[in-house]
Structures are given as C-alpha cells and as structure tokens.
Design a protein around this nucleic acid. Structure first.
Lengths: 182, 182
DNA sequence: CTACACATGTAAACGGTTACATGATTAT
DNA sequence: ATAATCATGTAACCGTTTACATGTGTAG
C-alpha cells in the first residue's frame, strides 16, 4: 500500500475533496505520484474507514455536495511510520522511451511527432511549476517547495532531451532518405 | 499491455535469457521501465505463446540450462504498431519524494538518511551509464544511446537534488534544534 | 562454509485501470 | 448547442508483487 501515503502527504495542505485531490494529482503531486480520480475516491474511502482521515459533508446549492477530508492524528502517526521506513527504489515507466529504444528498427516518423508533443507538454508543466514555486517560496513548509523544484527541473531536462532526440533522429532519417533516393 | 513492448525493445540487442534480461532491466532498461525477474519469465512465456519471440534451449553442463529468446517477424510488426500508437503519459512513483513532501510534519532525520543513500545509489548508476555510453557511441543503433543519455542525466539531476534537499533540511533541523534548546 | 551468481518457474494476494453510471451549472 | 467544470462512486478486468519452490557451481 503506497497511494495511501501520497494521499496523506497531499492532504497536509488542508482540506480537500476527492475532486480537488484529483486535480492536485494532475499537477503538483503528479511529479512523484501518478493516480487516477477513481483511485483517489476509493482510497479516500479506505482511509476514512481506517480512521486515517476524516471527511465532512459540505452541502452546496448550485453544485453537487462534496466531502472534504483532513488527516487525523492516526493518519499523522501513519505518515511518521512511513517516513521512517525503508524507501523503495523509484519507479518509472515511459512508453515513449521504449519507442526511442527501438527506433532504429521501426519507422521513426511517429516517434518524432510524439517527441515534439512531449516537449510541448513539458513546456506547459514547467510554467505551472514556476508559478507554483513562486507561491511556495512564501510558504513556511519546505517539503512541497523541494518536490516542486525537482518536478520543474525534471520537466526542463525532459523537454531538452525530447528536442535533442527529435533533432538527432530527424537528421538521421533525412540522411537515410537521401541515401535511398539520390 | 506494455511490459511486452519494453521486453521486445530490450531483445533487439540480440539473444537474451530471462536471467540476462532481468539484469538488463536492472541497469539500462530500468531508466524507463521497472520490472521484476518473475515478471520477465512470465512475459517471455506469453510472448513465445503469442509468437512474438522464439526461444531456443541451450544445454549447459556446469550451469542450469537456459532459454535464449529472439524477436520474430511478428514481434517486429507488433513493435512497429506500438511505435505508431499514441504514447501514454509517463508514469512515476517515488516513495522518497512523498516523504520529502510531508517532511515539515514528520521527523526529518530518517528522511535525511534516505536522501543521502539515494544520492549514493544515483552516483553508482551514473558511473554505469557513463561506461555504457562509451560502448554505445560505437554502436550503429542510436536509440539505446539516446535512452542511456537520458538515464544518465536523470540520475545526475536526481543525485544533485537529493544532496541539495538533504543540506537544506539538515540546516533547517539544526536551526529548529537550536531554537528549542538554546 | 558462506555467500553470490546462475537459472527458471508457479500461485495467491494485491493494486491499478477501464468501463460503466449520473447529473447540474457555467462558459463559449 | 457544445464543451468544460463540478462532483462521486462501483464492478469487472488486468497487471504486478510477494511468497513459494528448487538446485548447482564458483569465489572468498
């Protein structure tokens, strides 16, 4: 069980609904933990059942009602235990890298397009992180600042690599084309 | 299904046994795909059943027999299809980052220790990648070179971030200690 | 004589993804 | 009109991890 701890850590910011958490996992938390909204709703229910978070119903009129969650003392104790336990090695899975690994034996054209698209996505993320960093500088918590910093630098490097790989592969395939059709 | 394609891409290097593949997934491939040995044995069986790889038994005397696998034409076609399909966003999960995110509310000491350990692991990986890069420069395949480059740069940045985070957190907790016990 | 490298697998338990299900309000 | 945002969940399926299972040869 591990999504559990990512959710608890994210809830340290304050009260969140499942929906709001899902958005947080789409931006900030997404740097080090990926999760789908359905997973979060489920995990919040389990955390509540286990007494690690407590939810309160907020009745709204022009919107559906929502449930806001906060970390309980038991939840904090669980986080403390987690922080002191041995960390598993980090875990990465990236389809695009698999495609690049195999690109010498496949058609490079679709890979080139995907590298460019990735670079654009990364650029957008960098901007979001830069804005988040400005806000986090004035926060007294250092943890979110440090993870956000890592997120931004990761995306920068990822963007640069995508652009570099795209250029190298484009030049290669142009050379190939010229050799095949002189 | 996705481990499938990572295995096919890794097998482009040549013949591998499950055991050898597991080692490759521990170093090179690990940059963009994480998998346990048991998973690889299982996936190789499935790939063989589906005709995407073919295995041949190699009888050994002073060691247990092994099965070496190569990608078939059908496997190459599958890789081609995969390369042209839309790439899922990359997927990351890192316990240590979760711990750093929450560090303002937990005891920082074990997190500091884990950051240092991670930095050391990263340093070791950087050396391995540097050596791999030297070999790959003389290879006519560009894909493995590009992914290895990304792996090395990722580990460098990760190491630097770990050391930076460790320093910042250490200074913080020393200041806290001084304030509590003047 | 202890640990590590070689070598392969199965079964049960767990976690994550996809598809399904619903429905109001607000902005373009 | 259409799309996006708000808002929450369940069920079936699939993939991953952990535990189990076995055995030889080589190096320290």
């Amino acid at each position: 069980m591990a999504l559990r701890h990512a959710v608890l850590a994210a809830l340290l910011d304050g009260e969140y609904s499942g929906y709001q958490l899902a958005k947080a996992f789409d931006i900030g938390v997404a740097n080090f933990w990926h999760a789908l909204p359905q997973q979060l709703y489920l995990e919040l229910s389990r955390l509540e059942r286990d007494g690690l978070v407590s939810g309160r119903e907020v009745v709204q009129e022009s919107r559906p009602n929502k449930r806001l969650f906060t970390v309980t003392d038991a939840g904090m104790a669980e986080l403390e235990r987690f922080a002191a336990s041995a960390a598993k090695p980090s875990f990465i899975r990236d389809d695009l890298m698999v495609k690049v690994q195999a690109v010498d034996r496949t058609d490079p054209a679709p890979v080139l397009a995907q590298l460019r698209e990735r670079a654009e996505v990364a650029t957008a993320k960098i901007e979001i992180f830069d804005q988040l960093l400005l806000r986090l500088r004035d926060d007294d918590r250092i943890g979110p600042y440090l993870t956000c910093l890592r997120g931004r630098d990761f995306e920068r490097q990822h963007r640069d690599w995508c652009l570099h790989a795209e250029q190298v592969l484009r030049e290669r395939s142009e050379r190939e084309a010229a050799r095949a059709d002189p």
